[in-house]
Computed example of a mutant assay.
Amino acid sequence: MSRPDEADAPPRAPARRAWRLVAGSVSKALLWPRLQLAAKAGLAAGIAYFIAPFMPGSAADYPYYAPLGALVAMYENVAGSIRQGLQTLVGLGLGIGLAFLLFSRGNPSPFTVAIVMGLGVVLAGLPRLGSGGDWIPTAALLVLLVGGHDQDRFSFGYLLQMGVGVTVGIMVNLLVFPPLHFRAATLSIAELRLALARQLGDMAAALRESWPPQREDWSRRSEKLALSARSVRQAVQKADISRQANPRRVRYPHDLERDYRHLRELESLTFHVQDVTQVLADVIWDQDTPFVVPAEYTEPLARALADVGAALKALTDEDPKHRVDRTAQASGAVTSLADAVAAGPSTDDAPGAVESILLSLHRMMRIVNAHQA
Rank of each mutant, 00 (worst) to 15 (best):
206 A>V: 09
215 R>K: 08
237 Q>V: 06
239 A>C: 00
217 D>T: 13
235 A>Q: 02
177 F>N: 00
182 F>I: 11
234 Q>K: 15
205 A>N: 11
227 L>R: 15
191 E>R: 12
213 P>S: 11
214 Q>T: 08
179 P>R: 00
200 L>H: 06
222 S>G: 12
231 S>E: 15
179 P>H: 01
217 D>G: 12
196 L>P: 01
203 M>D: 09
180 L>S: 00
233 R>E: 14
180 L>R: 08
238 K>C: 02
239 A>E: 00
219 S>L: 13
222 S>N: 12
227 L>N: 14
192 L>Q: 01
179 P>Y: 00
185 A>W: 09
242 S>W: 04
209 E>S: 07
243 R>K: 03
225 L>F: 11
199 Q>D: 12
206 A>Y: 10
230 R>H: 14
227 L>G: 10
198 R>T: 09
225 L>N: 05
235 A>V: 04
219 S>E: 07
226 A>W: 11
220 R>S: 13
236 V>L: 00
218 W>L: 10
201 G>Y: 03
231 S>N: 15
211 W>F: 13
209 E>W: 06
201 G>P: 05
192 L>I: 13
205 A>Q: 10
210 S>I: 08
213 P>Y: 10
241 I>S: 03
226 A>E: 15
224 K>L: 10
188 S>F: 06
226 A>L: 05
190 A>F: 14
190 A>D: 09
184 A>Q: 10
235 A>R: 09
180 L>T: 11
227 L>Y: 04
238 K>W: 12
199 Q>Y: 13
208 R>M: 10
207 L>E: 02
194 L>I: 08
188 S>R: 14
178 P>H: 01
205 A>E: 01
207 L>M: 12
236 V>P: 03
216 E>K: 15
228 S>E: 12
227 L>W: 08
192 L>P: 05
237 Q>F: 02
244 Q>P: 00
242 S>F: 06
243 R>I: 01
177 F>S: 02
187 L>E: 15
221 R>D: 07
211 W>C: 14
226 A>Q: 14
219 S>D: 10
186 T>M: 10
233 R>S: 14
189 I>L: 15
236 V>R: 03
181 H>R: 15
189 I>P: 03
218 W>M: 06
183 R>Y: 06
192 L>V: 13
203 M>Q: 14
238 K>Q: 02
199 Q>W: 12
202 D>C: 13
244 Q>C: 03
199 Q>L: 08
212 P>Q: 15
205 A>I: 06
233 R>C: 14
221 R>H: 04
232 V>G: 02
236 V>W: 02
182 F>Y: 08
